[in-house]
Design a protein around this nucleic acid. Structure first.
Lengths: 201, 201
DNA sequence: AAACTATACGGAACATTGTTCCGTTTGTCG
DNA sequence: CGACAAACGGAACAATGTTCCGTATAGTTT
């Protein structure tokens, strides 16, 4: 399983504590958001704050550890939908999936788009992982002419995440219309440069 | 001019200080962002922190005071463009204007979408003021059939602001494509469920 | 089993920032 | 000029992130 035991084994209490912190973080994130005070997580895990910083030097490390599984699952969903559905529909369904992913994580959308250096790894990892799977849908759409070919998956995923954040902050459902407008725009005009020219071929 | 001098005149030093704080905030916002520490603004204005809180109890009050003019100018631009150009083009040009407004204010986009209660009045005021003028463009577009009629100005402005934030955080220009996709979607399919119907009148 | 050592721990201590509050200063007016 | 209300300044407090080191202990060696 391990390709090689790197150098040393971790101490048993350290392993226990790492797990306890992860568990506590999961609970605290759920009820107070991903920006909850370190001390709150430490108390929940019955651990000193030092232990948290030793295991997860950055807040983003902890967030990633907690949500990594769900991230991968959401990325896999893109892969699956892309294989099973026409590109435009796959995107629509996946946007719904992404919405659930973002909406169910208190404070996550805000952290993702905060620009705060403490959270900087989040967009890189999350949007990167998702985009790498969404790209296939866009490629398929570009190939069969149903989606405009000039949009990168990274940009699309980021745009969707931002639009979805609208309903996270305000009333639920408020972002639905704009998401649908965006996806329509993606399916619609190939967008030359100047005005619209209904057909070029 | 004044409909009525309310009750009392403000003390001369108070007037001076209010102005000094506003001036200092303008400078500090420009170089450190709208989330700069109060103490920094106080030092710049040569004033105690108490004076700032007395004049501007909430951070959002200070931000609003500093940018109110530019906000109104941006709203007026929507009005003017709506009167002078076809709806779709007016929106495209105005989105450009909005981009400049947002991009030139360090930390503003983050504050606007932070969800932080300290900044809560910002989206209400800024998006509200802008939306009230953008609505006319959407109405015109709905009337002549060039824009889908099911999008509220509030939602559109918020969506544009969020997309624009992408280039504020990352490389400049990164949001351009997605903004254009969104606007294309707005001009494209009028019906949520059915296909497109070129003319209704 | 005891001694030893590297690892990990806990949490006090420090730094930053928002916010309040009150003793002091000062503008205004009679 | 004196009295009073308005405004001031900044010390003080609270919340939070982060570091650091004396102490405890798991794992190892004898």
């Amino acid at each position: 399983m391990d390709v090689e035991a790197p150098v040393k084994r971790k101490r048993a209490d350290a392993v226990r504590n790492t797990a306890a912190v992860l568990e506590a973080a999961k609970a605290v994130f759920a009820e107070s958001g991903v920006d909850a005070p370190v001390r709150e997580i430490a108390a929940r895990a019955e651990v000193g704050v030092g232990t948290i910083y030793r295991n997860y030097p950055q807040r983003s490390d902890l967030i990633i550890a907690v949500f990594r599984h769900e991230l991968d699952a959401t990325a896999d969903a893109a892969e699956r939908l892309g294989a099973e559905r026409p590109p435009a529909e796959a995107l629509r369904l996946w946007a719904e999936r992404l919405r659930r992913f973002v909406e169910t994580k208190r404070g996550f959308a805000a952290a993702l788009h905060s620009g705060d250096p403490a959270y900087a790894p989040l967009p890189r990892l999350f949007l990167g992982v998702l985009a790498s799977k969404v790209q296939a849908i866009l490629d398929a759409g570009a190939a069969d002419g149903t989606l405009r070919p000039d949009v990168r998956a990274e940009d699309l995923v980021e745009a969707l995440a931002r639009l979805i954040s609208i309903s996270v902050d305000g009333e639920p459902g408020r972002s639905d219309t704009m998401v649908s407008v965006l996806l329509d725009g993606l399916a619609g005009p190939p967008a030359p440069t100047a005005q619209q020219q209904p057909r070029t071929d």
